[in-house]
Design a protein around this nucleic acid. Sequence first.
DNA 1: CCCATCTTGGAACGATCAGTACAAGACCCT
DNA 2: AGGGTCTTGTACTGATCGTTCCAAGATGGG
Lengths: 195, 195
Amino acid sequence: MGMLTTMAGRKQFDVDEALRRAMHVFWRWGYSEASIDRLTEGTGLGRSSLYGTFGDKSALFRKSLQLYTQTYHPLFDQALRGPHPSPNAVVAAFLRVTLNRIADPTVPDGCLVTVSAAQFPALDAEGQAMVRAVIDGLRAMLEQALLAAGAGEQEAAEWALCTLATNKSLAVLSRAGFSGEDLATVAAVAARPRD
Amino acid sequence: MGMLTTMAGRKQFDVDEALRRAMHVFWRWGYSEASIDRLTEGTGLGRSSLYGTFGDKSALFRKSLQLYTQTYHPLFDQALRGPHPSPNAVVAAFLRVTLNRIADPTVPDGCLVTVSAAQFPALDAEGQAMVRAVIDGLRAMLEQALLAAGAGEQEAAEWALCTLATNKSLAVLSRAGFSGEDLATVAAVAARPRD
DNA sequence: CCCATCTTGGAACGATCAGTACAAGACCCT
DNA sequence: AGGGTCTTGTACTGATCGTTCCAAGATGGG
């Protein structure tokens, strides 16, 4: 009884690709400046299709952020998986992924999470919670990888936090127009042995 | 003939204080979300007074950014002036000013420059140039102080960049709701001796 | 073939956006 | 006292905001 109908799928577009493009709009412009007009233009969808498929702007943002983590967390995960000879190697591998993403010319400057975090008051409660959750998730991934690489408990916590901080700073500096060379320097120094 | 009249100053408000409040609105909300309504509410001024005194929104933003540097650059300058026994002490002193500003409850989270940098595409050309100039200015101040504290040329350049990066990361993490303790940890690790 | 379902473009909604016009009132100078 | 200048609140502009509505077209099942 219709329950197993083939969903009558006659959408004129690829949902995943449209979401990917919407993600790029939020990424480039930030939540406030990502108007529905920019989103329709960026995705190629009409307003009806956009709303009908993804819901309102807040929901679309959350789905974009989810796609962002689905896209990049595996890369971070692979880089962190190791095995790494030292905690410094973990930091270096993590930041290498960040630098690669920033160097990707097919993608906006900075990082969707950082741009959203900087615009925190512009997000509704659900958006804020999700951004915060993504950041906390990255922090936990880092901490675990650092522990696995032989770092002490406190060291792991500290370095995870600082590596996360470096990640955020790379995004901001990238947005402000700093050169890839400068960004690489920041990453290299952050991954340098200390203590 | 009026040329030397006393300017007939009967403004109903303190221009400096109004600008300070406008700066806080941009600081808290970012350029996009700092609507004229929020600015009038935040300053207590009517639209006419706001436009008559400061010009349009872009000009008001630039004047707010100028006030920001006039307010905080002296603090950075004093902290950097030293004399410092080592480059690490320079970094520590600089970040202490940043932490103090973030800990100030009378002021929004993060940092106006960082929030603006993250929103770069939302700014017009003049705003972008000014943000970039402020950042470059801070970087130069840091580099000079590091040189004065005995750092080599390359070291000074590297550490200036990385300290600037830490400054930006503290602002982003603060905006995302990280605790003052976490921020202090980031600053402490950044100021730790290395190499 | 026909009806139910889904999708789509486009028009329209009220709200808010940045910015302006204007008249009324307050002040200074002569 | 009176005229010119400055300031201020209010109302208004056209544009854009996010969102909804609706009719027309496309599709698949019975």
